[in-house]
Amino acid sequence: MSATTDARLEGRILDYLKSRLPAGRDFALADVKRIAVGWSHETWLFDLNYREDGRDVTLGLCLRRDPGNTLLRHLSSLEEQYRVLKCLESTPLATPKVYWYEDDTAILDQPFLVMEKVPGTCPSPWGRDGRAFYQAAADRGSLPASFTSTLATLHTLDWRAAGLDFLGVPAKGRDFALREIAKWRELIALSEHPPEPILTDLIAWLEANAPESEQVVLVHGAYRTGNLLIHDDRISAVLDWELQVLGDPMYDVAYVLSDLNREGTPLLSNLVDRDAFFRDYEAQTGFTIDEQRCRYYNALYAMRSVAFWMSASGLYASGRSDDIRLARTAWSVPVVLERAATELGY
């Protein structure tokens, strides 16, 4: 998107915000930053300055817009993100306050939501600076404790009271795992990728070995550094509500324990000592970490990753996106299939 287009869009954003705050006047946007392009929803951060009742007001805002061709578009809409965040406002979990969702494309061409810009930073764990940031935080100890306690808060909040049962409540037993398999199988089918025998083996194995799970909690689906906002050495908000589901807490725990998010360090998610995580998570939730179930969910994550990359490369192949990063993901498919083969023991 060009600078001119961005400037035009900023004017339309301002017009929209004026319409939402009829008691205000002298509106202006400041410090506008566009922070994501292409992969997921488009995101703008800015301050809205205006006057109301004779005083100056500054509102830090984050606007997320659906570009119309996102990776998980049909699985996690902005409307669902809005509903989830709205429900979470009544819980102890740190999340951004969400203000408005609009599906009227006359306003900004695509559906969008507006939420609070929470103070904090979100260093990428993949780069050198991010690794150094998390290593220093690990040495201090506060952030790792906050990482674990925030996950415990997520897994013990009353999702039913919060109104999150619209996400779909799995039955006790094997239902949760089978629902996840069905969801990712659907995305794989939509990608129209050629058949992959390792994937066939993986899915058949997952279906044959789906574990029983007793607890049903709110699962984030991608709980790791990089999806958590940090302020004053603690988690100030849990972000990226695109993969949430009601289900087995071990699904999130498996993601935390995974080698994928460690960047070669022995620390979970680049940050947390494994023994401390086990001790604190179990004490704060009352759940016992089941490593065998976590290993199963690691294999399920391999299927999910294959689905992501098939979907991403399919978006490019079909001409729905011109983002060359998506073309690159065609070679991520065999990489994840190799990992799946290893998970299955061959």
């Binding site: 025998p197 390792i198 083996d201 065999p334 299939l337 190799e338 083969a341 299955l344 061959y346």
Partner: peptide, 10 residues
Amino acid sequence: VRRTLRASID
């Protein structure tokens, strides 16, 4: 079968 799949993915 998996022996063949492993060789292919390698």
